[in-house]
Amino acid sequence: MSQHADTHHEEFHYHAPGLQHQFEDMKQQEESVSIGMWMFLVQEIMFFGGLFTAYLVFRSRFPLAFAEASNHLNAFWGGLNTLVLIVSSLTMALAVFYAQRGNRNMQVIMIILTMIFGATFLGVKVIEYTDKYNTGLVPVTGWNKKTKKNAEQHAAEPAKKEQAFTLPLIETSAAASAATEEHAAPYVNPKGEFQWNSGRHVFDYAIEKEKGGKAYLTEAERVGYFSQGEFDPNKYRDKIRIFYYIYFVMTGLHALHMIIGLGLMSWLLWAAFRGSFGPEYFAPVEMSGLYWHFVDIVWIFLFPLLYLLGRHFLAGGTH
């Protein structure tokens, strides 16, 4: 603000440190900042909401392909990341707690811990993305690892793909992972295309169920997986690719929010280290905390929706 306005104003009011000129008192400022932050979170919820809608539409129409695709996400890493984020949420909440108490050292420690767990999350994400890159599961052509063993294998590729889709129904998770490893070995992908070499276990499972007289495929699936009455692996793969596309966009945007959160944390760390926050003024810690918890909540939903679909098809498919 201009010099003029400030000097003019001081004649009327005492200004608390950190109080901006447009507010009357600290209470008004805190209330404004907190409502503002919540409005921001509302828009964030709607922002991710668009993605969740897209997920919902495709998931409800092609549940089998989504389950098939989801089985190749590593639920261990996903679960671990969920725990990591929950711990970071706890440390963040404690950082706010100590800021309110004016305990500078514990504040700093908690913020550092939050940052460490946040970075761990991103590290695990890198491991997962690398795995997808190596196995041809990034939905964009050319963004996967380009492997070219020799020309013969390249020529033989279509036949192998066909074979991959004629695997028998796999009953146990052990057998499934064995089958996956078996097929990961001769992996050839000269152009770095999206590839699906892991069969159609979930689809077969559903067909098996349908023989019992119960409708198991959705109407969209009856159209979406078949060409001229025959199962079409390419159309099935398209739906699986859509899952991976949604997976990458959702987790990518989530990771972007984490990175922004880490940026906020670094600034917070610096300010907390200088002892800026105390019982009267801790709004920045609290607001960053709200943001951090929000990012955590998004992951709380992403984890079951992306990682845990249709694991029972592999684990307990005994009927």
Binding site: G79, F303, L308, H312, G316
Partner: peptide, 14 residues
Amino acid sequence: TIFTYFSSFWDLDG
């Protein structure tokens, strides 16, 4: 979280 992880292996759908 742990409960979600393990419950996903139960065949509740079936």
